[in-house]
Simulated scan of single mutants.
Amino acid sequence: MRCDKVITYLRIVGTTLFGILLLVGISTAYIMGYKLITTAGNYLSFGLYGAILVIHLIIQSFFALLEHRNMKRSLETPIKLNKSLALCIAAYQEDPNYLRKCLISVKRLTYPGIKVIMVIDGNNDDDSYMMEIFRDIMGRDKASTYIWKSNYHQKGPEETEESYAESLQHVSRLVLNNKCVCIMQKWGGKREVMYTPFKALGRSVDYVQVCDSDTMLDPASSVEMVKVLEEDPMVGGVGGDVQNHFKLAQSDFLSSFS
């Protein structure tokens, strides 16, 4: 463990020194304007500034290739998927077609025992179609739903302190005791929507994955991202390969929930 800390410290120091050296070199080259190659009339020229940038790009590409090969080998190593995972979906006035595609992709995830929590930013009648889609896709016999007059930071217009406290406990029990949950809550913005599952989950799961309601997840996305986190304890979070296709992405973000 001590050796790992020393190596990590040396990497930080080396990266910092390299960055400072690169910044000083680029700044000096830019100020001096020294040209290595130039043609008559300056139609074509290649200066010290450009040379440093090219060298930097080559070094970056070299180490990126080494890291890619290292990660490819590590991902090919089988691991036990025995850590608990919760997928949190944030929804706000989503296009019905996008939401259906998102939830269908969620059902196809291959991670064993994954918990799915979708929180809708808004609890009006105009928002209820998203909960109905959730019930239809995830299964009416499996989906647990709750229309919440409040959220974790704001009471509903008709809620008393007592009823608000009871609703907070109900949300926590709902999330902790069910594998498939949809909550419609008082509008509060995306941060409030994300806060609800995080607060309710607490430390009950090992990892949490987040995505928007217009995201299509690759079936293996959760498994592959957990592999990265399990392979290296120094990695605290990992992002997926996001590809924009009719507003649909492959995967968003997964991190440790400890």
Rank of each mutant, 00 (worst) to 15 (best):
K5C: 08
K5P: 00
V6T: 13
T8Y: 03
Y9I: 11
R11W: 04
V13H: 08
T15S: 14
T16W: 01
T16C: 11
F18W: 10
F18P: 00
F18I: 07
G19N: 12
L22R: 06
L23K: 02
L23R: 02
V24G: 04
A29C: 11
L36R: 02
L36Q: 03
T39F: 06
G41R: 09
G47E: 07
L53P: 00
L53A: 00
L57W: 10
I59P: 02
H68L: 15
M71S: 07
K80S: 15
K83L: 04
D95V: 00
L99H: 01
L99V: 03
I104F: 04
R108V: 00
R108S: 09
L109E: 05
G113Y: 02
I114E: 03
I114H: 09
I117R: 05
I117V: 14
I120K: 07
G122T: 03
N123R: 04
N123A: 11
M130V: 06
F134G: 10
R135D: 12
M138R: 09
G139E: 09
G139L: 12
K142Q: 13
A143R: 10
T145K: 04
Y146N: 08
K149C: 15
T160S: 15
E161S: 15
E161V: 15
E162T: 15
V171L: 12
L174S: 09
L176V: 12
N177T: 14
C180H: 05
M184R: 10
M184E: 11
Q185V: 06
R191W: 10
V193Y: 01
M194Q: 11
Y195G: 01
T196Y: 01
F198Y: 14
F198Q: 13
F198D: 12
G202A: 09
S204A: 15
V205W: 05
D206L: 07
S213T: 03
D214E: 12
T215S: 11
T215W: 02
P219F: 01
S222E: 02
V228P: 01
E231I: 00
E231D: 10
E231Q: 10
V235I: 15
V235R: 03
V238D: 05
G240Q: 02
D241M: 06
Q250N: 11
S251F: 13
L254S: 05
S256Q: 13
S256Y: 14
